[in-house]
Design a protein around this nucleic acid. Structure first.
Length: 295
DNA sequence: CGGGTTTGACCTGCGC
DNA sequence: GCGCAGGTCAAACCCG
């Protein structure tokens, strides 16, 4: 497949992203969730949807994403010193931007009949998606981390369903889907072309089940919770001023290297983030809510 | 054998 | 309207 490796920046859907302002807390987990749901960033985005409903939420939605664009600008801003992990979270609020296309998550296999798209090849007919259906973008956010492993363990089980060559990058982008059949959360993983040590992980959707080994239950946020809790300590947040878009935030933090190359086991190598001066908590605390608060 | 990965083909959106 | 690039499907393959 990767027969076509094109190279050329692609910055199209930035408008769909809502990049949150910086925030400060002891760890990403808290950063995203706050001490209580109410005050968490995610809840700012309305991500405190009960597990029961979250599943249905994404079920019929097809996500049109374009991380490449955003992420590109992401790493541009990440001039991380070697061996330090920079974790950047970019949050997008589901804007329900629509375009014609259809469900993909749900009855992906039933598309054959539903399709109005006439694609002769029997094999491909099934790929045809229903037309006329709206595509709704789900909230998503990306983590930019420095890690030697592409697929960071986050407490959930993922099944890879695709891989694509990314334009302007020698590294392919992998597409993962939560193995829970009822869960529609997806995740994209790619390496920065500019800094191969940087891994960009983008989450889309919300988990409707508990994570594996992270009994916090129910929301996509747990990905981050788990993820963050592994990435751990000394996280420095700084207002991501690099974003040409509205607001953004940067989360620089300590390195996190796979132990013996085994996914899921990490050593936390603490090092000071030099590229991002620690930002005043109050300031960021201010930025976050206001920046995120958008609709 | 079941579940996960690989990979080529196809679809859709978007910019030109 | 065309071409490009991202995203997804699904058959084939691999592995435990």
């Amino acid at each position: 497949m990767d027969g076509k490796e094109k190279v050329d920046p692609e910055l199209t859907t930035e408008s769909s992203w809502r990049v949150g302002g910086g925030g400060v807390s002891d760890n990403v987990n808290e950063f995203f969730f706050g001490s209580d749901r109410e005050s968490s960033i995610l809840s700012e985005f309305g991500w405190n949807i009960p597990a029961e409903s979250s599943c249905g939420l994404g079920d019929s939605d097809r996500i049109d994403s374009n991380l490449a664009g955003e992420s590109r600008s992401d790493y541009v801003s990440v001039s991380a010193p070697q061996r330090t992990t920079e974790l950047m979270a970019v949050v997008e609020k589901g804007e329900a931007s629509v375009s014609s296309s259809s469900s993909e998550d749900q009855p992906e296999k039933s598309t054959a009949s539903g399709g109005s798209s006439a694609k002769p090849p029997a094999a491909t007919a099934s790929k045809a998606r229903k037309k006329g259906q709206k595509r709704i973008r789900q909230p998503r956010f990306a983590f930019v981390t420095k890690s030697e492993v592409d697929h960071l363990e986050d407490g959930y089980r993922w099944r890879k369903y695709g891989q694509k060559a990314v334009k302007n990058s020698p590294f392919p982008r992998s597409y993962y889907r939560c193995t829970n059949s009822k869960c529609t959360v997806k995740k994209r993983v790619e390496r920065s072309s500019e800094d191969p040590s940087v891994v960009i992980t983008t989450y889309e959707g919300q988990h409707c089940h508990h994570s594996i080994g992270f009994p916090r239950g129910g929301l996509i946020s747990h990905d981050q919770a788990a993820f963050a809790s592994r990435l751990t300590p000394s996280i420095h947040y700084s207002a991501g001023l690099q974003y040409p878009q509205e607001n953004s935030f940067h989360i620089a933090q300590s390195q996190h290297v796979p132990a013996a190359g085994k996914i899921g086991e990490f050593h936390t190598v603490q090092e000071t983030i030099s590229s991002q001066p620690p930002v005043d908590q109050g300031l960021l605390g201010d930025i976050v809510p206001s920046g995120m608060r958008n609709v």
